[in-house]
Amino acid sequence: ITFYEDRAFQGRSYETTTDCPNLQPYFSRCNSIRVESGCWMLYERPNYQGQQYLLRRGEYPDYQQWMGLSDSIRSC
Rank of each mutant, 00 (worst) to 15 (best):
I1T: 01
I1M: 03
T2R: 05
T2S: 06
F3S: 00
F3P: 00
F3T: 01
Y4P: 00
Y4Q: 00
Y4E: 01
Y4V: 00
Y4F: 15
E5P: 05
E5D: 10
E5G: 05
D6R: 11
D6G: 10
D6F: 04
D6A: 06
D6S: 07
D6I: 03
D6T: 13
R7D: 04
R7P: 15
R7Y: 03
R7E: 11
R7K: 05
R7S: 05
R7G: 10
A8F: 08
A8D: 03
A8H: 12
A8T: 10
F9V: 01
F9S: 02
F9Q: 03
Q10H: 15
Q10M: 03
Q10W: 04
Q10V: 12
Q10T: 13
G11P: 01
G11F: 00
G11T: 03
G11N: 15
G11C: 03
G11K: 04
R12Y: 10
R12F: 12
R12V: 09
R12T: 12
R12S: 09
R12C: 07
S13K: 15
S13M: 07
S13R: 12
S13E: 06
S13A: 08
Y14D: 00
Y14A: 09
Y14Q: 03
Y14P: 00
Y14I: 11
Y14N: 04
Y14R: 08
E15W: 14
E15Y: 08
E15S: 11
E15A: 06
E15F: 09
T16K: 10
T16Q: 12
T17S: 08
T17R: 13
T17I: 03
T17N: 03
T17C: 13
T18V: 09
T18D: 15
T18F: 10
T18Y: 10
T18G: 10
D19V: 06
D19K: 03
D19F: 08
D19R: 09
D19M: 09
D19H: 07
D19S: 06
D19T: 05
C20S: 15
C20A: 15
C20R: 14
C20Q: 09
C20K: 03
P21S: 04
P21N: 15
N22T: 14
N22L: 13
N22F: 15
N22R: 12
N22I: 05
L23E: 02
Q24A: 06
Q24K: 08
Q24R: 11
Q24Y: 11
P25R: 15
P25K: 11
P25D: 15
P25Q: 08
P25C: 15
P25Y: 03
P25S: 13
Y26W: 06
Y26C: 13
Y26S: 13
Y26L: 13
Y26E: 05
Y26I: 15
Y26P: 08
Y26N: 13
F27T: 14
F27I: 05
F27D: 00
F27C: 04
S28H: 10
S28A: 09
S28D: 15
S28L: 07
S28F: 13
S28C: 05
S28G: 13
R29D: 03
R29Y: 12
C30I: 06
C30Y: 02
N31V: 08
S32P: 01
S32Q: 00
I33S: 01
I33P: 01
I33A: 13
R34G: 02
R34F: 06
R34L: 07
R34Q: 09
R34A: 12
R34I: 03
R34M: 04
V35C: 03
V35P: 00
V35Y: 01
E36R: 07
E36Q: 07
E36K: 07
E36G: 09
E36F: 05
S37P: 02
S37G: 08
S37A: 03
S37I: 14
G38T: 04
G38K: 04
G38D: 15
G38M: 05
G38S: 11
G38F: 02
G38C: 11
G38R: 04
C39W: 12
C39A: 08
C39S: 14
C39L: 07
C39T: 10
C39I: 10
C39Y: 10
W40L: 03
W40C: 12
W40K: 01
W40E: 00
M41Q: 13
M41S: 14
M41T: 13
M41V: 06
L42P: 00
L42V: 10
L42A: 06
L42T: 06
L42D: 01
Y43M: 03
Y43N: 11
Y43E: 00
E44M: 15
E44Q: 13
R45L: 05
R45P: 00
R45M: 11
R45N: 04
R45T: 11
N47F: 06
N47D: 09
N47H: 05
N47Y: 11
Y48V: 00
Y48R: 02
Y48Q: 02
Q49M: 05
Q49C: 15
Q49A: 10
Q49V: 06
G50W: 00
G50A: 03
G50V: 01
G50D: 02
G50N: 02
G50K: 02
Q51E: 10
Q51R: 11
Q51V: 10
Q51T: 04
Q52N: 08
Q52S: 09
Q52A: 10
Q52F: 14
Y53R: 10
Y53M: 11
L54M: 08
L54E: 11
L54Q: 14
L55C: 04
L55W: 01
L55P: 00
L55F: 03
L55D: 01
R56S: 02
R56L: 07
R56N: 13
R56M: 15
R56Y: 15
R57S: 09
R57E: 14
R57W: 05
R57L: 08
R57M: 14
R57K: 13
R57Y: 03
G58M: 03
G58Q: 04
G58P: 01
G58F: 02
G58D: 15
G58W: 02
G58C: 04
E59T: 04
E59P: 11
E59M: 09
E59Q: 11
Y60L: 03
Y60H: 03
P61D: 09
P61L: 07
P61T: 05
D62R: 09
D62G: 10
D62Q: 07
D62F: 13
D62Y: 09
D62E: 07
D62C: 04
Y63N: 06
Y63M: 05
Y63S: 08
Y63A: 06
Q64C: 14
Q65P: 12
Q65L: 06
Q65S: 09
Q65N: 12
Q65A: 11
Q65W: 05
Q65G: 08
W66I: 10
W66V: 12
W66S: 15
W66F: 10
M67G: 06
M67A: 09
M67H: 10
M67L: 10
M67Q: 08
G68P: 10
G68S: 12
G68Y: 14
G68H: 13
G68N: 08
L69E: 12
L69A: 11
L69R: 10
L69D: 06
S70P: 14
S70Q: 07
S70M: 05
S70L: 08
S70C: 15
S70T: 07
S70F: 08
D71K: 14
S72H: 04
S72Q: 07
S72W: 10
S72E: 06
S72T: 05
S72L: 08
I73F: 07
I73S: 02
I73C: 13
R74P: 02
R74Y: 15
S75Q: 03
S75T: 01
S75Y: 02
S75D: 01
S75W: 00
S75P: 01
C76T: 11
C76H: 02
C76K: 00
C76L: 14
C76E: 01
C76Q: 02
